[in-house]
Nucleic acid binder design. Structure first.
Length: 744
DNA sequence: CTAGGGTTAG
């Protein structure tokens, strides 16, 4: 055997080092580790490369471990570690490295400055920048300029830009990015014309700027003018189309692209996912030559979006590596379906939990109204961000504990507009209009202005309260503030008008939207369904399909409930089938609920019962309730009793369930049973919250609690109720035995 | 003496 010369050996190490870097850059960190382990000889570059590979793939802990145990460190090792922390948004740790390193060069300084600018700490960045006048190179200037520009501090950026000794293309592009990323396209174009030379980055910034402000025509015009568009240009344009629902055009671009990379594939998959075309998304996912963690995460998200949690979970387990984004997507999937046990299983699997996954869990408990558990997690969090605080505010507001919501609001350090929105919406939802108004004024006093979401939230609160007057006032404010063309606001307006029975207004708002999305259609369809116009709702649904908009889970809740309200049995069954077969959307309890009710009312009790028994999900109380109701109408005591048994297992404390069962027996003349149930009911029901209803008259909300002697106009109410009951009897309505006793 | 670390576009 011949001994290899040291030169050959050296070039081998050289090549392996290169490989580690490349694998790290393309997200294939596992393969990089493999190469690293198999190398018999390593030099300092090998370690440095591996540190970067780890850090670029979110494995900052491994990067640090390697850094700590490597035999010799050079300046680049220290810099790589700072860069690693920069990539992982860990500014404090980066600073720790920065202060303890033996020597610093301009790379080190620039890295640290970038850490601060990315973190929004412009003052600290500037402080560092000022500390090293002699070592500042062009890159360092550029970093500082980019920091100012990105934050929209154009004057500061411009001052440095004019001051700097040598400008390069990146300096120009950094200024340009400031304008385009802040929606200042007039200024951006001006600079673009002024630039001594342009590269693809400059062109792509312009296209992206137009995409961001929703001006697809201009984006397209500039895209076409790009001399040699690269993958970034194509992806930017593709995402622009996708985001505006123009999926066909996005598809066309994807097909035309010559140099597709992972990002291009990911973008197209994301476009399909966004349009709920999960099967097309999966086909691309299977076809693509290589997948990175974004590809996997997008697919998991896609399945979550259409409610296919099983598919999502399978995919998550098939992933070649663990990825926190995908795990968080899975968590939010479970959270949306209130499956907190499974969510928390995934949560427990994550070793280094970030804020986002904590927030997802908290949001989950909040949505289930389990505030104690939400608070428990919240208290444990060491790195709360505004999202965490805001979620807690929303949570307490939702369960009616506005005192707690306010307490959280007041305890938080930095409030953003969402914090205010959560608080104001909370007040609105709880009918505390005056407090909402007061908070809105305070918001103005703090120099903040209501934004799109302030209005969208406010309007959705009005929708859930059916508070038309306040809703209308908000609509006027929307017009005055210039948010009429915002899609979120428009959709909230549709929902509000629809819920208040003003279908004409809802339709009017709908017609004014330039780019309706699936949510706009959903709101309108649900509105028609809610107000009893089942056929129109189904008609709208068909219109929506003709327009090429893909329905989602919510669409089907709307259109199925439309069929339900209008007794369109066969159409409902057909639609339900197409939902799973054609659109591959997984039915939720709500969908089954519509169908069971629909079949039940039509007297097709066997089919209804069969559906409940055979469905994939666990039957909810609502489903048994629907079955019980149907059994009562069609006098099927046997099925009714079975449904009631199941129902009472799930909700033993709810009085209305006993009333339903009791009425059924009353109708069948089984008075012993009626009496027995009444006794049961007295024993078991612990209704803490009395039934509550409200109406809005002349800007004021009047609420009614059951058994509430303090209601000021109780006598009038009773007198009107008696009149109404008499009239109902006159036109042939026979009131239920028990409920009539309760009223009269 | 080519590799490894910093600024601008997906």
């Amino acid at each position: 055997m011949r001994l290899r010369s040291s030169g050959e050996n050296g070039s081998h190490v050289f090549n392996q080092n290169l490989k580690i870097t490349q694998l790290g850059k393309s997200g294939r960190v596992e393969e990089a580790i493999q190469v690293f382990i198999e190398m018999s000889q390593k030099n300092v570059v090998t370690y440095n490369s591996m540190i970067s590979a780890y850090a670029k793939n979110g494995r900052i802990v491994d990067a640090r471990r390697l850094f700590d145990k490597m035999p010799h460190r050079n300046l680049i090792s220290w810099n790589s570690m700072i860069a690693g922390y920069l990539h992982n948004d860990m500014v404090e740790e980066a600073h720790g490295i920065f202060v303890s390193m033996p020597k610093r060069d301009s790379f080190s300084w620039t890295l640290m400055i970038t850490c601060y600018t990315r973190n929004g700490e412009l003052e600290k960045a500037r402080e560092l920048f000022n500390l090293l006048p002699d070592k500042r190179d062009t890159v360092c200037w550029n970093a500082m300029i980019a920091g100012y520009a990105k934050k929209g501090l154009f004057d500061d950026a411009r001052r440095l830009f004019d001051e700097m000794p040598v400008k390069d293309l990146v300096s120009w592009n950094s200024m340009l990015a400031g304008y385009t990323q802040n929606g200042e396209m007039r200024m951006g174009l001006h600079l673009f014309e002024e630039m001594p030379e342009r590269n693809l980055v400059s062109w792509n910034l312009i296209v992206d700027g137009f995409v961001e402000i929703g001006n697809l025509d201009s984006a397209w015009q500039y895209f076409k003018k790009i001399p040699n568009p690269n993958a970034v240009s194509w992806v930017t344009m593709l995402c622009g189309f996708a985001r505006n629902g123009r999926i066909a055009e996005a598809e066309g671009l994807f097909k035309q692209m010559t140099d597709r990379n992972v990002v291009s594939w990911n973008a197209m998959i994301a476009a399909y996912v966004q349009d709920c075309q999960i099967n097309k998304a999966f086909r691309l996912f299977s076809e693509m030559p290589e997948r990175d963690s974004i590809s996997w995460t997008t697919m998991v998200n896609g399945y979550v979006r259409v409610g296919k949690l099983e598919e999502a979970r399978k995919l998550l387990h098939r992933m070649p590596y663990r990825n926190i984004a995908a795990q968080t997507a899975m968590i939010s999937g479970y959270v949306q379906h209130k499956r907190m046990d499974e969510a928390s299983q995934i949560f427990n699997l994550i070793c280094t939990r970030d804020v986002v996954c904590w927030n997802a869990m908290i949001a989950g408990y909040v949505q289930c109204g389990r505030m104690a558990e939400a608070q428990f997690l919240f208290d444990q969090m060491t790195n709360k961000d505004t999202v965490s605080w805001n979620t807690m505010i929303t949570g307490y507001a939702q369960v009616g504990l506005m005192d707690k919501a306010l307490e959280i609001f007041e305890a938080m350090g930095e409030r953003n507009i969402v914090s205010w929105n959560s608080l104001i919406t909370g007040f609105l939802r709880n009918g505390l209009y005056l407090d909402a108004l007061k908070s809105s004024r305070m918001l103005w006093q703090e120099g903040k202005r209501p934004d799109e979401s302030t209005f969208a939230c406010g309007l959705s609160a009005c929708a859930s309260l059916a508070a038309l007057q306040v809703g209308k006032q908000l609509h006027q404010l929307v017009v005055k503030s210039g948010y009429v063309n915002d899609l979120f606001v428009s959709n909230a307006l549709i929902a509000m008008y629809a819920k208040c029975g003003r279908l004409f207004n809802a339709k009017l708002v709908f017609k004014h939207i330039t780019n309706v999305d699936v949510i706009s259609w959903n709101s309108l369809i649900a509105g028609y369904a809610l107000n009893g116009y089942g056929k129109d709702a189904v008609g709208l649904f068909q219109e929506m399909l003709m327009e090429g908009v893909h329905p989602d889970q919510v669409t089907f809740i709307g259109v199925l409930s439309a069929c339900n309200h209008s007794g369109l049995v066969d159409q409902g069954l057909d639609l339900f089938e197409s939902m799973t077969e054609v659109y591959s959307i997984e039915p939720l309890a709500e969908h089954y609920g519509c169908l069971v009710d629909l079949l039940g009312r039509a007297g097709r009790l066997d089919e209804a019962f069969k559906m409940v028994r055979e469905m994939k999900i666990k039957p909810t109380a609502g489903l048994w309730g629907a079955l019980l109701g149907a059994s009562k109408i069609h006098q099927s005591l046997e099925l009714g009793e079975y449904a009631a048994k199941k129902l009472l297992e799930l909700e033993p404390h709810k009085a209305s369930n006993y009333v339903l069962l009791s009425n059924m027996h009353a109708e069948a003349g089984r008075w012993n049973e009626v009496e027995r149930i009444r006794v049961f009911m007295k024993e078991r029901t612990t209704e803490k919250q009395p039934g509550c209803s409200w109406i809005e008259v002349r800007n004021q909300v009047h609420s009614f609690l059951s058994d509430d002697p303090s209601q000021p106009r109780i006598a009038e109410i009773f007198s009107i109720l008696r009149t109404l009951t008499a009239e109902m009897k006159n036109i042939g309505y026979l009131p239920d035995f028990i409920s009539s006793i309760d009223i009269l």
